[in-house]
Design a protein around this nucleic acid. Structure first.
Lengths: 209, 209
DNA sequence: AAAATAATGTAACCCTTGTTACACAAATTA
DNA sequence: TAATTTGTGTAACAAGGGTTACATTATTTT
């Protein structure tokens, strides 16, 4: 494990901290689609992402959902951070977008390291900063963009975090994550295809530009 | 100043920290409507809110805006926190919703206090947590609610932070903050009035329920 | 191979929201 | 007080996106 830890976090943390992480952290692999956190869960460990991508979703009372953002390697979950510290329930849902590798840190260490390591504090603060900015991006999309623009942006993000640049989702799945209906997505996808932006296939989509 | 500091932050911070804040912080009063931060600004001090309310807005490239949330007494601005630490530009706009009193902390102290005071770290973490949750609330509203529901929620928040419980805004101003048009707001306000939820006047609105 | 299931394409329709236009009333200024 | 500006009410229409319904094609199961 130490090697993957060094590769991804070596430039962020001093050696003492890396060694501590190596000692108390547990390595974990999750398959694509694995549900890592549900709304209402109490979180008892903090993940450091080594590889893969995790999608973070919001859900309303009717079960309608909305994609907020993706976590990628080098990221951690700011929501988890606060949940751990405050002992509050999770407000979001986390699902592995691809197969992913992570190091899980027991929450007791967080307070200790925050006092001890400047690099840890900076990491936590920067993590919050990134997450807040991603939330702003999400707000920009739903507040200021029309559905076709949102869709194109969504497809680009999906392609970025996927292994091979293709989007392996059905129209229905896309509709759920954008909180709209399958018919609307099919309609707009066809429009984007006619514009030469994408190529549609059964179960997957490729970007052309 | 020490009294107002104690009243609002005494239960959060230990005495040593309160004394330090008292020494290095500068007291500031701003009138309603005062523009405290614009998008792109570099922020050089962190505010601790003593009284009044600050509204935090997002703006897109066309100058369209959207109300994100209000800061009230006991709050600080998480965005500012990260801007200070990371030396990055502000992503949001902050305007005094009411007359407000604040204590401004020079940013150099933040790193120092984060190492020194557990209560400061907790305050900062909790502040991030609150802001993330408020962003989620905002996302819920724009993603899952219809405009009439958003409007009613907006009116309730406005009334909460105002001195006397009335909403002193024109329909045009409300339209800007919800990122819609004046005609839509007038239409929905009239509907809410007919439902007995509110009473309309020129330049202000009162809630009935 | 036949039947069932899953994914997509598309038409027709409706509702919410956005737009344009204009009337009228209240407040401010000349 | 007359003229102008500001705020509100409302009608008529347009556009985006949500809904229902059904056809077609690909894939999986029997």
């Amino acid at each position: 494990m130490i090697q993957e830890l060094k590769d991804n976090y070596g430039h962020l943390f001093e050696n003492d901290l890396l060694n501590e992480i190596n000692q108390v952290g547990t390595f974990k692999e999750v398959p694509e689609g694995f549900k890592m956190i549900s709304i209402g869960d109490y979180v008892k460990a903090m993940p450091l992402l080594i590889s893969g991508a995790i999608k973070i979703l919001r859900e309303d009372n009717d079960g309608d959902e909305l994609l907020l953002y993706f976590l990628e390697k080098g990221d951690t979950c700011a929501m988890t951070l606060t949940c751990c510290l405050g002992q509050t329930k999770s407000e979001i849902k986390a699902i592995a977008e691809t197969d992913a590798k992570l190091i899980m840190i027991p929450i007791q260490k967080m307070e200790e390291w925050s006092a001890k390591y400047k690099s840890w504090r900076n990491f936590v603060f920067e993590s919050y900063h990134n997450r807040l900015n991603e939330m702003l991006e999400t707000i920009d999309s739903i507040a200021f963009l029309k559905m076709d623009e949102r869709l194109l942006k969504y497809l680009n993000e999906k392609a970025r975090v996927s292994e091979d640049g293709t989007i392996r989702n059905t129209h229905q799945e896309i509709a759920y994550e954008l909180h709209t209906s399958r018919v609307v997505i099919s309609r707009l996808l066809k429009k984007l295809e006619n514009l030469g932006e994408i190529k549609l296939h059964r179960n997957y989509i490729t970007l052309l530009k």
